[in-house]
Design a protein around this nucleic acid. Structure first.
Length: 554
RNA sequence: GCGCCCGUAGCUCAGCAGGAUAGAGCAGCGGCUUCCUAAGCCGCAGGUCGGAGGUUCGAGUCCUCCCGGGCGUACCA
């Protein structure tokens, strides 16, 4: 039984003993920051104060006296809080459970295997991925991992917008580069894509095709559109490979049109009375539902807007059977999101179907000139270049270390450091140190046979009684928290919580490592190895949820 | 103007769905290495939680207003 379950049982029992009413919800529990407040504490007395018409401290006092549980060593009332101290044996039993669960420790069965989609990156094929997309890639992938750990059947999806005006501009810009390579004096259109990345492609095409497309004709447009998208997709695939993210489904805007879904969804909205006509275009009546403005759904030339397609796309997601969908998007899409959510509400889809994980932008500290990035203006740092310089692990870790809704200042100086000042190495090095101890133990013959197996007998027979050092018990309490951290990180769309947890775990381990020897300590050695084995498993699991490696050697 | 987000130590940020004396890392200062990797460890110092009201036994956390910053406010995506 884990710590919280144990505490709840003890408190529930004390409540019953005193004939106090049970609280309406769960018994509240928290992990006190200070050791003097015990291992786990509850503010239950504050909740009962009103009903019992007595001061919290008195109630807590009564509860402290009434608590009688074999695993609770002491109960104390302080300032209305009920602080519980757990017996070391109970903590060692928890460690046993952690080890028994092995690699699965930290996972839940909350999703029931239901289909869950994370849509992320979905960058238009108009250029390589920038460091901004990197945040989205790292975030989306971590969320996908987290929801898998919660027991959902997760699909990673990339929505590919390969039509429309932006692609037109891209094709035109590439054509200009092609003409320039042939010596012609033309320039990229004002609204076009000015990045250098089109230059070498233009040269290649000039070399390959010669003067085949001297004018910007519909035929040329068609060809350059196709080639441009192809080449951009190739770059994006390279970037995704660099950061180590792969998608299960690539959906294309064009498919939605071909299947007639856009038209159909538009008609449904019209039937609901949510659409009106003005200036030859069709508008959604969003202001009637409290939004700031009415957006156009169908332009006066009869083509649907991006929003209209996006609404249809989400209807499609629902029909494809996803129980829940999370879109990871930048803060510049907030209005869009409100409009899509409204449309789905009007169409009668469940409120909790679609969620957005909105993130703010990334700025690089220590690089001049690219504070504010723009693919179109060609002012950006390519994600792949950053990864080549710093390594995948550093980039991924830094990208998810801050809560998504806050701006991320990417500290190049810190990221470049290979010392443990760099938080990702600090965590990874904890894992490496443990791996090193195990290598040494094996060499010395100090590693018990079958160590680390999940055989029930092995787990049950371990003698953990030598684990009595305060740091050892603290480590067990921290390991006990892990599943809750995983759950919270997923449900609040906040992988940074996992970073924080891992850094805290490493922060307890490193001093312990420095102070306490593991090998050559008689009976303490196998017990400490057992603790480190569990710690290593959790570090590895936590890092892997973030898409970061757990190296054996550094 | 309106919508969303952010404002916590010199810097970068946490703060567990309202709880205990507000935490961490970096930078600063002082100490530690015959030993499983010093890519380290220990200690010190550092704060009107942007401001003002309000709700509450209790507010960094919730509400209102104000100030500062970001993003959006397209028949672009």
């Amino acid at each position: 039984m884990r710590l919280e379950a144990l505490a709840r049982a003890a408190i529930a029992d004390a409540l019953a003993r005193l004939s106090f009413p049970a609280p309406s919800g769960e018994i509240p529990l928290e992990r006190p920051e200070k050791a003097e407040y015990g291992d786990i504490s509850s503010r239950i007395a504050f909740l009962l104060a009103k009903e019992l018409r007595r001061p919290p401290q008195e109630i807590a006092q009564d509860l402290a006296v009434a608590v009688s549980h074999p695993d609770i060593a002491a109960a104390e009332a302080v300032g209305g809080f009920l602080n519980l101290q757990v017996r070391p044996e109970a903590l060692r039993r928890i460690l046993r459970e952690v080890i028994a669960e092995g690699e699965r420790y930290g996972e839940w069965d909350l999703g029931g295997g239901k289909p869950f989609q994370v849509e992320f990156v979905s960058s238009n094929p108009t250029g390589p991925l920038t460091v901004g997309h990197g945040r989205q890639a790292a975030l989306g992938d971590a969320l996908a991992n987290l929801f898998s750990a919660l027991g959902w059947d997760v699909t990673r999806e990339y929505y590919l917008n390969d039509e429309g005006r932006q692609i037109e501009l891209l094709a035109r810009s590439l054509w200009v580069r092609y003409r320039q390579a042939l010596g012609e004096d033309v320039s990229v259109p004002e609204q076009g894509y000015h990045g250098d990345y089109l230059v070498p492609i233009g040269k290649e095409l000039a070399w390959e095709w010669g003067n085949r497309y001297p004018e910007w004709t519909p035929e040329a447009a068609e060809v350059f559109r196709r080639v441009a998208v192809e080449r951009m997709m190739a770059m994006i695939h390279e970037d995704l490979a660099a950061i180590g993210v792969s998608f299960d489904v690539w959906s294309r805007e064009g498919d939605l049109h071909r299947r007639g879904l856009v038209r159909e969804v538009f008609e449904s909205l019209r039937e609901k009375g949510a659409v009106y006509e003005k200036d030859g275009a069709y508008w959604m009546r969003s202001t009637a539902y409290g939004l700031a403005r009415d957006p156009v759904l169908i332009r006066s030339d009869g083509t649907p807007t991006y929003l209209m397609v996006d609404i249809a796309y989400h209807v499609d997601k629902y029909r494809r059977g996803f129980a829940r969908v999370v879109d990871v998007q930048g803060a510049d899409h907030i209005e869009e999101q409100q409009q899509v959510k409204l449309a789905l509400r009007i169409l009668g889809y469940p409120e909790d179907f679609l969620h957005y994980c909105v993130h703010q932008f990334v700025t690089l500290k220590g690089r001049e000139g690219i504070e504010r990035m723009s693919t179109r203006k060609g002012r950006f740092l390519r994600l792949k270049d950053l990864i080549d310089e710093l390594g995948r692990d550093v980039v991924r870790y830094f990208m998810v270390r801050r809560k998504p809704e806050a701006h991320l200042v990417f500290d190049m100086e810190l990221a470049k450091k290979t010392s443990m000042e760099n938080p990702v190495y600090y965590v990874q090095y904890a894992h490496t140190r443990i791996a090193s101890i195990f290598r040494e133990a094996e060499k010395n013959g100090e590693l018990p046979r079958d160590f680390g197996t999940r055989h029930a007998s092995w787990v049950a027979e371990m003698d953990l009684s030598p684990l009595a050092d305060p740091d050892e018990l603290t480590l067990i309490k921290e390991l006990d928290r892990f599943p809750d951290v995983v759950r919270k990180a997923a449900e609040s769309y906040g992988p940074h919580l996992l970073c924080e947890y891992l850094e805290e775990l490493a922060g307890i381990f490193h001093p312990y490592y420095n102070r306490v020897r593991v090998l050559g300590q008689g009976k303490a050695t196998p017990a400490r190895l057992a603790l480190l084995h569990a710690l290593r498993t959790v570090l590895r699991k936590g890092l892997s949820l973030l898409g970061v490696s757990a190296p054996e050697v550094m």
